[in-house]
Design a protein around this nucleic acid. Structure first.
Lengths: 187, 187
DNA sequence: CTGTTATTTCCGTTGTAAGAGAAATTAGAT
DNA sequence: ATCTAATTTCTCTTACAACGGAAATAACAG
């Protein structure tokens, strides 16, 4: 049996897992899910469900469900370990990739349904005579905004990671550069 | 008494409020808060707590607390109505401003505490000898990422709204332009 | 100062989601 | 094919957050 360093033995690591779990709570993902994610993120090698359950002291079934959710967010993936029948899991360790996947997951779960619902509302509103024109206008504004944000987000996903990183690190520089280039292109 | 058009009489409007409330649920804000926000967003004129309670059929105390939360998010504001003793509230109606405030609120509530907690963890981890170096590295990566994201976000907040809108509407164009301008930057 | 109305705080009830453990199902070995 | 081990599904309990209503406080008019 291979000797894995048990990271839950470390204070810092268990603190990290605790905090992460707590934070996950705020984020709408439940504690177990966030804790498992933290554990896998810190782990140097893939872990199986049993190991996770033991390490975190949570029920095996809970681990099963949580893993499924993490996979659906694409924050972890199954990896086959040769000579072992059990499923093993490892986390996405590239933090940028991770950030993007969380953003993507949240958008799919939170923004997209809203956009769709709103479309129906506006359609309905346009046929109605009784509705205050101000209200109609506001709904349309909202719809436009969501559409723009959606397009922007899709666009950003197509940008290769290194460029995205560069872009973010530039911060406001981007704006001033574009001012120059796009705005008053006086050589 | 001034005649307000009762928007809750409209199907589209009440649908909107319903959806919005439901969506708020997904977002971690409770239904009442989201519904009140939707109502105020559609309303052409400021409403007082009583009107809101009646329109949505929720308890007066609930309205009070929800309004407080919405104010803390800066999604609505108190407005004095001359000749009326009651507090009135109106929503921020600029969708971009609204989007920014929500993003800001979530960052403050979700990201910032995490960043802080993480700092403590890493500090602890660096003093520890027992910790797997891989784990330490991962914590540091995470910290770097959060720091970068934080700086980027602050930067974006300083950008004047119209420019921000322009920037988003450009989408990937930004990247290609910068490839040209920034990529070959010497010095 | 007192009565009245608006607002907030407190507390009890209810609804919803997390998590544990048992039971059932699936996959793999011999 | 049968036995064993891993995983998932199901159900029950528990914990927490939302909400309503009552009580308390604050703001204002006369």
């Amino acid at each position: 049996m291979t000797e894995t360093i048990d990271i839950t033995k470390s204070n810092a690591a268990s603190q990290f897992i605790l905090y992460w779990g707590d934070m996950g709570n705020q984020w709408g993902v439940n504690r177990s899910v966030a804790q498992i994610h933290a554990l896998l993120y810190l782990s140097a090698k893939p872990l199986n469900a049993e190991q996770i359950a033991v390490a975190l002291g949570i029920a095996r079934s809970n681990v099963s469900n949580s893993l499924k959710e993490l996979v659906s967010w694409r924050l972890i993936r199954r990896v086959p370990v040769p000579g072992d029948r059990r499923e093993h899991y490892e986390a996405e360790v590239d933090v940028w990739e991770m950030g993007i996947r969380i953003a993507q997951g949240r958008k799919e779960r939170e923004i997209d349904p809203a956009t769709q619902a709103l479309r129906a509302c506006v359609a309905q509103a346009e046929t109605e005579s009784g509705l205050d024109p101000v209200a109609l206008q506001r709904m349309q504004d909202m719809q436009d905004f969501l559409a723009t944000a959606d397009t922007w987000f899709r666009d950003m996903l197509t940008v290769p990671r290194p460029k995205l990183v560069m872009l973010m690190k530039m911060g406001t520089k981007v704006v001033s550069l574009l001012n120059f280039t796009g705005g008053k292109k006086s050589g």
